[in-house]
Each structure stands twice: as structure tokens, then as C-alpha cells.
């Protein structure tokens, strides 16, 4: 008997190398890799016009708010772990934050429930001053590190006087984020609810103001029918219009986006929103310890198999001999 000569067996070397691979596996199991994660704060418009039903889900019409909720809930599992999502609401002229961003994987159930519970009844007042709400959202979030996603249909109610527009210059470019336009371009009626929360028809033209009557008119007094500087700065005629119908005011939102340095995206479906949000501009590269043991394990397996490949070799040999 002699043990010499074992080194002439390729199987021996395969085993030694496989063991070396395993050693590498235990020594170097993890590698630091950078992965994009997101930190998003969604501020959702819950004013009345968001009740307008111009989206469809499973064939039946749903309100804009319902569709937004559905989309956000579908978006949650698409975000990589360690991403954070915060939630806030907007109505009147202010935004408020319900909670600061929460990690999406460990807080999935909580986030999902909180989004599902968003309701127009949470509104503490009924106006819809989009620009004011946007400014307050940006002010709330300016010290955080989240990207703001302001979800709205852009319908100012009552309409703004172009003379008194919100000034975003102090905050422009301080924050990255997106204005997410919700709704269809075709005007649709806005549902009305009674004090008990039951549906009570729709808003009619008489229910809503159709122009701003705040301050001075932006028009030249000579052009205003029945102008009186003190008593009727906007004229004597009652304004008529279609402010009782809701449609996505896209040009207005795009203008706001330019003024605030945010992007604009129109909500169509979860997939498109996911793509729009998961851009490198919004991503934070976070070092994650990635498991790289599989590399060494595959190497070890590849080295191990030829040991039992004698059969294969015999067949090969036979085939070669035959030829």
C-alpha cells in the first residue's frame, strides 16, 4: 500500500479546490454593494373634487381618491426594502403629515392600512388651495430627506385670482419631488354628500364660485362690466363657469411644477408611477451587505461534479474510440 500518487488523481485536486472555494465562502460571505432605496412622502389631496369619478377599476367607475389609494397600495410592495414612505393629506390651504416616512418592508401592514383609511371626510375645511397646500407641504418636508409626491387634480376652489399667486421662490429647488396629476381631462361632476355622509347628487353651477372675488381684479377696470372700485371691483355680473365640474388641470400643475422645481407626472397606472418614481434622481444609494456566498458555492459544486463524471468520461472515451 502506498499513499503516494494520489496527487495524480484529478479528483483529489477537484476536492481540494472545492474545499478552498468553501473556505473562501466562509471567509468572505458578504460584499458591500450599493442599492437604490427611496424615501417618499406622499401628500394626498382629499378635497371634494377628488371624489369625482373618472377612473375605472375592474370595469366600474371609481373616484380619483379611491384610485390613488389603490395605486399607492399596489406601489408599496414594488419599492425595495429599506425604502421609506410617509403619508400626509392636503385640503383647504394646508398640508399635514400623518406620519414621517416608515420603512416599507417592516411597516407594510401599517402603511397599507393607513393609505386604505384615507378619506375625504378627514378634511378639516372644504377649500382647495392647491398652491398653498403645495407650499405648506414643501415647508413641512424641507428639513427632512424625503422626496415629496404631491397628489392632486389641480382644481383650485374657489378659483385663484392671478394677481395673488403663491410665491415659491423661497423654496424652489430646495426639494426634489413630483406633482402627481390625478383625474381625466374631460370635466365630470363632483359628487355631493349630506351631513350623514350619504351621496346627495352632484354640485351644480350655483353651488360654487366661478371666479375669485378676493382683493383687486387682475383685469383692466374698463373691461369689467359694471365695475365699481369699492363696491364691485369684479363687476356686478355674477360669474358663470364650469368650476362645479372637475377635470385634471394639467397646464396649471405643470406650471406649479416649474415654479417649485418639481417634476410632473400624470397618474395612469401603478406601473407607470413606479417607473416615474424609481428614477436615479430620487434614489439614494444605500450600502447594503449583499450575500455573495452563492458565487463560492457554485464554484464548489462545479468542482465537485467532475469527480463523479467518470461515467461521462467513459462514454466520451468510448465515443471517441468508435470514431
Amino acid at each position: 500500500m502506498s499513499f503516494s500518487g494520489v496527487h495524480k488523481d484529478y479528483r483529489f485536486w477537484c476536492l481540494v479546490l472545492a474545499l478552498a472555494a468553501m473556505l473562501a465562502l466562509f471567509v468572505h460571505p458578504r460584499e458591500r454593494q450599493k442599492r437604490p432605496v427611496y424615501n417618499l412622502a406622499f401628500i394626498v389631496d382629499i378635497s371634494r373634487s377628488m371624489n369625482a369619478q373618472d377612473y375605472r377599476l375592474d370595469g366600474s367607475p371609481v373616484s380619483r381618491l379611491h384610485y390613488v389609494k389603490q395605486t399607492l397600495r399596489e406601489l408599496l410592495p414594488k419599492l425595495p426594502c429599506q425604502s421609506k414612505v410617509g403619508l400626509g393629506i392636503f385640503t383647504e390651504r394646508r398640508s399635514t403629515l400623518l406620519f414621517e416616512p416608515i420603512e416599507v418592508c417592516s411597516g407594510f401592514a401599517e402603511l397599507d392600512a393607513a393609505i386604505a383609511e384615507l378619506d375625504w371626510r378627514m378634511a378639516w375645511a372644504a377649500d382647495s388651495r392647491i398652491a398653498g397646500g403645495l407650499l405648506s407641504a414643501l415647508e413641512i418636508l424641507r428639513n427632512g430627506d424625503s422626496e415629496v409626491v404631491f397628489v392632486t387634480d389641480g382644481q383650485e376652489a374657489p378659483p385663484v385670482n392671478p394677481r395673488y399667486r403663491t410665491d415659491f421662490s423661497a423654496i424652489k429647488g430646495k426639494l426634489d419631488g413630483m406633482i402627481l396629476g390625478v383625474g381625466g381631462l374631460q370635466p365630470v361632476p363632483i359628487p355631493k354628500f349630506n351631513a350623514k355622509g350619504e351621496a346627495a347628487g352632484f354640485y351644480s353651477a350655483e353651488d360654487v364660485p366661478h371666479r375669485s372675488s378676493f382683493g383687486e381684479s387682475n383685469l383692466n377696470p374698463e373691461e369689467i362690466e359694471g365695475y365699481d372700485a369699492r363696491n364691485a371691483p369684479f363687476g356686478r355680473e355674477a360669474a358663470t363657469g364650469s368650476e362645479h365640474l372637475a377635470s385634471l388641470r394639467e397646464p396649471y400643475l405643470q406650471q406649479l411644477a416649474t415654479e417649485t422645481g418639481l417634476r410632473y407626472h400624470r397618474l395612469t397606472d401603478t406601473e407607470a408611477l413606479n417607473e416615474a418614481l424609481q428614477t436615479p434622481e430620487f434614489a439614494v444609494q444605500k450600502p447594503v451587505d449583499a450575500d455573495v456566498r452563492w458565487k463560492a458555492a457554485v464554484a464548489a459544486l462545479a468542482l465537485l461534479l467532475p469527480i463523479y463524471g467518470g461515467l461521462l468520461k467513459r462514454y466520451l472515451n468510448r465515443a471517441i474510440n468508435r470514431v
Binding site: G86, G88, I89, T96, L97, L98, F99, E100, P101, I102, E103, S106, G107, A109, E110, L111, A113, A114, E117, L118, D119, R121, M122, A123, W124
Partner: peptide
């Protein structure tokens, strides 16, 4: 009006995030 913030949960980080907000 009432605001629903977070459901009953054991996720203390989430609760803290809501208190911070």
C-alpha cells in the same frame, strides 16, 4: 374632523414616526 393615522400595531418605529409628525 378625525384623522386615521396608524392602526393598532406593535411596530413601535411606525408609532414613533407618527408621534414625530
Amino acid at each position: 374632523s378625525p384623522l386615521f393615522v396608524l392602526p393598532l400595531t406593535e411596530n413601535k418605529e411606525a408609532i414613533q414616526a407618527a408621534i414625530n409628525a
